[in-house]
Design a protein around this nucleic acid. Structure first.
Lengths: 148, 148
DNA sequence: TTGTTAATGAAAATGATTTTCATTTCCATT
DNA sequence: AATGGAAATGAAAATCATTTTCATTAACAA
């Protein structure tokens, strides 16, 4: 098996084996900038690896989410979509969803303001309500340029 | 048919008829503070109105969303949940989802800060990317008091 | 090299939602 | 108040995403 084995040791720590489907799926996700669905992953891999089943894609995605390597999101209807977690802070972005055509658009304005709000909210939720905040999601809905 | 007919005229404007299932479903939603699923609505209504089918519940919910009377949300997995849109600004709230037990908790801290961020973001999205923002969603994930 | 155990794939099961279609109900117009 | 036509409804079937089952295969520690 070729390709980057940089995640191999993290699988060990999770009592998980380093297998071809896992390497290939993780590699695809790390090279993909957009959110992709399980079926899209399955389709992308089919030509090169026809042996990899959709079930394994789902199971691997679930594992990667638990390992904290990828994010899972459900944008309204449709299938869940997965995105590689970038370590780079400046790649942080939000989503705008066109309610007409379903397009998902990333943008990264007001990240600082958002981080400020998130920080405050997390502190308050922790103190006042005793919640442990681990993640958050902010998204906007409306009409994209084409659909207005 | 008894009950408040205050929405009747809005149905006319939407080229929709004022029917028993629609009145009953809307009435239930307006009296319910929590997010409820289609099946929960169906079950609540079953004793009093056994004739109302689950299909009609789904269709009515879809109509009410299009009319702007209710909000539809998909909290991760599980069924979509619906919530009556309150006109009262002070009833605006956010959601905290416990990733362990699935509990959804409303809270309403930092509404002002959030509105500020939302306003700024909407303006920028409109100017810079030419999107028309109609709605937004902010939610936090983590562990609730019981699940830590 | 081998034994055990996790991982896999195919098929079936599940659960939410949508579609189909024959029947019923609403309601504008007699 | 009666009525005709379109919209709404309900039951069943279809669809779609995801999960479970189970027999087989592959990873990897010893």
């Amino acid at each position: 098996m070729h390709g980057p084995h940089k995640w191999r040791h993290r699988f060990r720590a999770h009592v998980s084996r380093w297998t071809v489907p896992r390497e290939v799926i993780l590699d695809l996700l790390s090279r993909t900038s957009k959110h992709i669905s399980a079926k899209e992953i399955y389709a992308s891999l089919y030509r090169m690896y026809p042996g990899i089943g959709l079930t394994t894609v789902y199971r691997t995605l679930d594992l990667l989410v638990r390992m904290g390597l990828i994010n899972k999101r459900t944008f309204g209807d449709g299938p869940s979509r997965y995105e590689f977690k970038s370590e780079k802070k400046n790649e942080h972005h939000h989503h705008f969803l066109c309610t007409k055509c379903g397009r998902i658009i990333d943008y990264s304005d007001f990240i600082d303001e958002e981080l400020e709000l998130v920080k405050k909210t997390e502190e308050t939720l922790a103190k006042k309500h005793n919640f442990k905040v681990l993640d958050h999601n902010i998204e906007f809905y409306g009409l994209c340029e084409k659909c207005q």
